[in-house]
Write a protein that binds this DNA or RNA. Structure first.
Lengths: 327, 327
DNA sequence: CGCCCTCTTGCACATATGTGCATTGTAAAC
DNA sequence: GTTTACAATGCACATATGTGCAAGAGGGCG
């Protein structure tokens, strides 16, 4: 009996998975009830007797994406292959290109908010022209002195609006101003307040993640000094910036002077935007990414495989233990 | 769009086959309709993107069995591993042992008809005692002078009846008698006629397949001479024997003198038994097996992997062509 | 031999999945 | 720019599959 039981199960597996027969047909063929077949198949799965292989070079990236989703608790993660020549620039390009897929569900009612950034600039470039239709594209924060015209706030927002065939609303101010006083008065400006209100009402936020280093656009555009960087890191524990605001490893906005000098959507209002997509990759941004994830600052992440792997290692242990507990 | 299409399909595959999510759950997670997921999965299957592997040392035998079923048009085929020391005797033993599984559906209403044979003797030995319950066990043909008492008709039928806890009905005559005259009078005997009538009414027939050679029990027990073998093969094209009757490569009973000298169930009545199981293996019986298959003489076959492979090669070409046509 | 326990089985029902068809979207051809 | 053909989509319905439960079969143990 126990001999034939295995054979029967095996036969069910072969007929089901390799001959593609329906469970009912298998039951008729083997003269057993369909319940039995169903239970055999379930048991075979549970015992790991059947294994499904997916033949596609990109499975590994989907796997990574899935694991990052679970580990960081994100709604959606897209992982692109890290380019062979893994320079910061090529990674930005690769990540940016993958972004267009995230715009599939943009409708003429959709309002998109956005910030400047090098990765974002690539993303906008790769958006198809004339296919998408959105309602409005609006800045999440002010701009900055021209580091490179193509990545400036003005250019990115404008070009996105063009590609989405949508209204363009900009925040006519720098991201960071000299002192809190100036910031207050600018934020009182109708044009700025209205723009930020519109940003707060958007359904999709698109942004990059900045490191707290000399490689950040905030530094490169002269909004902060070397001393600021040191202070932010050492004194405030800042690990990254998003929409011009700095946060620590737990994703809490740090209480530095920069908080009051920023012309950008307030963090709480930013967090009320239902879909917040970050485009970011590269080893330098690991801590920045862990922070946004821990703090729930974003819902969606587009990154590269190397970064994804590193993230899992840095963030994974807890999850690995959890998974063990589940088994 | 086409980029994201592949990614989406891939994601569906991973979620379905590796994360074991239901199609509906996948649909919700990816914000697409369940129909789309369903169709993606179907397409992936069709394109051969997913492949299922079954981890079990015996899959290959199930595969063989399946292919032999299709190639020879049998209802059910059981293939056992050819023993490492592939002597005729060890093959018979292996095949015989596998037979017990075929008796699962024997009920107290089941009447089983049976013939002698070395493989059958092993099969009977391996039947469990005290578990099965049948109604009647009856000879399909007469017996023979004692080649070996354990495989004699009398012993096999009797022991099977014991194991099945069933009534035992034998045909009190030799399988082959000296001339047609004797056969006619024996067949007119009440005891013999009644036994054969009961055999004709059985639901399951269990038999071996004999080659037309000096290795056949019919020869070994002295029912035929070397000259008979030659005549049967050359003149009549006989390739094997079943229930004491010879048939050619198309499975047609040959019109030799042996036909009128046999004390056995007539071929047409034999063919009316719904389930006809043959136990046979070994290279020597290849032609015999092809004959029974072509003629539809049996519905079920128990054999060993080496023989099964050889059968597919000998019988397969036509089927391979058919399969090509289907593709 | 009877009892109890466990594992298996089949059924009724709840759920999940597949499929033809009408509709919409899309891209090539004119 | 219009037309046409074709593929993609969603829906209603048919079908297939999963699951809790109660009945039954087997298998030790007293």
């Amino acid at each position: 009996m126990s001999v034939s039981r295995n054979a029967e199960m095996l036969r069910c597996c072969v007929l089901y998975y390799q001959e593609q027969l329906a469970i009912q047909q298998i039951a008729e063929r083997l003269n057993i009830s369909r319940f039995k077949v169903s239970r055999y198949l379930k048991e075979a799965q549970g015992r790991g007797i059947v294994e499904v292989q997916i033949h596609d070079p990109n499975v590994e990236f989907e796997h990574l994406a899935l694991r990052v989703e679970q580990a960081l608790g994100l709604d959606e993660v897209v992982v692109v292959p890290t380019p062979f020549e893994a320079s910061s620039e090529s990674i930005r390009l690769a990540i940016g290109r993958a972004g267009s897929a995230l715009f599939d569900d943009v409708t003429p009612e959709t309002s998109v908010s956005i910030t400047w950034g090098r990765t974002i600039a690539y993303m906008v470039d790769s958006l198809p022209g004339g296919k998408l239709n959105g309602h409005r594209v609006v800045d999440l924060a002010g701009g900055f002195g021209e580091v490179s015209s193509s990545v400036s706030s003005r250019a990115v927002t404008l070009r996105t609006a063009e590609k989405l065939n949508a209204e363009c609303v900009q925040v006519p101010a720098p991201t960071i101003v000299g002192n809190a006083e100036t910031a207050r008065s600018l934020l009182a400006e109708d044009s700025i307040r209205r723009a930020l209100d519109l940003a707060a009402e958007s359904q999709i936020a698109v942004t990059g993640i900045g490191p707290v280093s000399k490689d950040s656009l905030i530094y490169l555009s002269g909004f902060m000094t070397d001393a600021d960087i040191t202070a932010l890191r050492k004194k405030h524990g800042a690990v990254g910036s998003i929409i011009g605001r700095f946060y620590d490893i737990e994703g809490r906005e740090v209480e530095s002077e920069f908080k009051s000098r920023a012309i950008a959507l307030e963090m709480d209002r930013f967090l009320s935007i239902p879909k917040r997509i970050a485009f970011a990759g590269g080893q330098a941004k690991l801590d920045s990414l862990i922070g946004v994830a821990r703090g729930g600052l974003i819902t969606t992440l587009v990154t590269d495989s190397q970064t994804a792997t590193a993230l899992l290692e840095a963030y994974g242990p807890a999850t690995a233990a959890e998974q063990k507990a589940l088994t």
